[in-house]
Design a protein around this nucleic acid. Structure first.
Lengths: 141, 141
DNA sequence: GGTATATTGTTTGTATGCAAGAAAAATGCG
DNA sequence: CGCATTTTTCTTGCATACAAACAATATACC
């Protein structure tokens, strides 16, 4: 078995290819791939705590702090103190952020199809199933 | 379709899970996941130019420079000027590096099996085939 | 109530990863 | 030959990503 065939290597390259594709999709909105993905999650559920968001997007809290910093600087999200737990932070979309997040959210489905267009629908279903199986039951989900 | 099911997100998470697994495997040798992967490639073919290595591991030259810097500082690889093209750099394993690279190279196959142990052999074959299909025909391979 | 412990986020430091540009050497074309 | 272009690598700047340490707050236990 060549190193080229190493699953860790191949998954990293597949991820990089996906990130590049997604990056190009969200670049017109002035955000990066990771920022765009966070916005897509926020479009589904707004006003979540930093910890809650972190567990859903499976990112280290330190990483999330940086991404939220930049989204906040761009005027797309706001940090608000949680009323019942003053340690916690609620992250909410601004008006501008909600608009952008909605548009980005709408890109997810078509761009998924576009990225996987060289798989047949049946292959795509199998691929997604196996991918979920590989990810499941691991640390951070 | 939920953002959780977005292929870009899932591939990123699968890659992160793979990298974490690989990182734990190579940590005893005092190298990071990326450094370990470079060493595994070098164990297969030594004394390659920086560009040649970069195209095989599909990394930006800026990224590779940093990784080689750190491997060099750890005394595992050496940069040598190419005799026939003085722009080019040959990257070679040191004696210590060759020993470490060999041991890491030997981990690839068993750790691939370990990482994919919740797939059946048949599922693994299908998964690898589809993964290759997804990656192929893209920029950087 | 008062202190030990746990939780929530941020900070700091290190390591990728890429884009853009710079430096050095080789190549090509007049 | 002489100069523009290309190739090869490095540098710089920015954005993840994580570990470890820290600050602020909440909870538990006495």
């Amino acid at each position: 078995m060549k190193s080229q065939d190493c699953i860790f290597f191949q998954l990293a390259k597949a991820s990089q290819a996906g990130t590049r594709h997604w990056q190009e999709c969200v670049a017109p909105f002035g955000v990066t791939a990771a920022q765009g993905m966070i916005l897509a999650f926020l479009a589904e559920e707004d006003d979540v705590t930093s910890g809650g968001l972190g567990s859903r997007v499976q990112l280290d809290s330190a990483t999330l702090t940086g991404i939220i910093d930049r989204l906040s600087r761009a005027g797309l999200v706001e940090r608000k103190r949680h009323p019942e737990d003053r340690r916690a932070i609620r992250i909410g979309l601004t008006v501008k952020g909600r608009s952008v997040a909605g548009k980005i959210r709408a890109l997810v489905e078509p761009e998924n199809r576009s990225f996987l267009s060289n798989l047949t629908p049946e292959e795509e279903m199998i691929f997604r199933t196996l991918l979920r199986k590989v990810i499941s039951r691991r640390k951070y989900q």
